[in-house]
Design a protein around this nucleic acid. Structure first.
Length: 215
DNA sequence: CTCCCGATAT
DNA sequence: ATATCAGGAG
């Protein structure tokens, strides 16, 4: 995406946002169930290459068995691996969760930090997971580039990049700040229902008139 | 770039 | 059978 948007492109983006707001509302609802910052952090770590529905099934029991950061920090690695097995990548995820929680206790007083640098210094926490925490827990305007945001932002012509960090910067220029957090939720909702990766339903999509890929 | 990996839809 | 799922690290 060019650094400067034309007036017409700004208007198109505004129409897209209005259509999304109209269809899905502007209430922010996180798809990963949690009742604390550290729970959302672990749920998001588990969500790598896994559906949010599966993560919610696993975390329902997981957060009963491990009710605190301390519990995860001293967890038996092989036992935790089995507890989270169905989310995939379970060896990496178990190792990362334990190391992450140990570091939270040792270096962050058991509190989930709010800045990008601290968050991404935690094992298994990359830019995407860090931005989920910043947006959801701390209400910091942040763009989360996951598989749906990547695919659909490119389809809509809002970026031509493939690198998530470059996509993030493009979207920061294209989207008004008050829609940064909402963009993820709306695009994920769209991506799970209409604009799926395997068989997008362009004919019935409410964005088809604004989407270059629908023609 | 590769590897990690089970569950599900197509 | 294969592509895909709220990615991250080496």
């Amino acid at each position: 995406m060019a650094k400067r948007m034309t007036v017409k492109e700004k208007e198109r983006v505004a129409r897209i946002l209005a259509l999304l707001d109209k269809e899905y509302g502007t209430d922010y609802r996180c798809y990963l169930e949690h009742d604390s910052a550290w729970q959302l952090l672990i749920a998001t770590m588990l969500s790598a290459q896994c559906t949010d529905a599966r993560v919610n099934i696993v975390t329902k029991d997981l957060f009963v068995k491990y009710p605190s950061i301390e519990a995860f920090a001293k967890a038996d690695r092989e036992e935790l691996e089995q507890d989270i097995r169905s989310t995939g990548f379970y060896r990496n995820k178990a190792k990362n969760i334990i190391a992450c929680c140990q570091k939270l206790l040792l270096e962050f007083h058991g509190e989930v930090p709010s800045d990008l640098e601290s968050l991404t210094s935690l094992a298994g926490v990359g830019r995407k997971t860090a931005n989920v925490i910043r947006g959801n827990i701390f209400n910091e305007p942040s763009i989360v580039v996951d598989t749906h945001v990547k695919r659909i932002s490119r389809k809509l012509g809002l970026t031509k990049e493939k690198d998530p960090e470059k996509i993030e910067y493009d979207l920061m220029h294209v989207l008004p700040k008050d829609h940064w957090i909402l963009w993820n939720i709306h695009i994920i909702t769209l991506g799970r229902t209409i604009c799926t990766a395997r068989s997008p339903q362009c004919e019935t999509c409410f964005l088809k008139d604004e989407c270059p890929a629908a023609k």
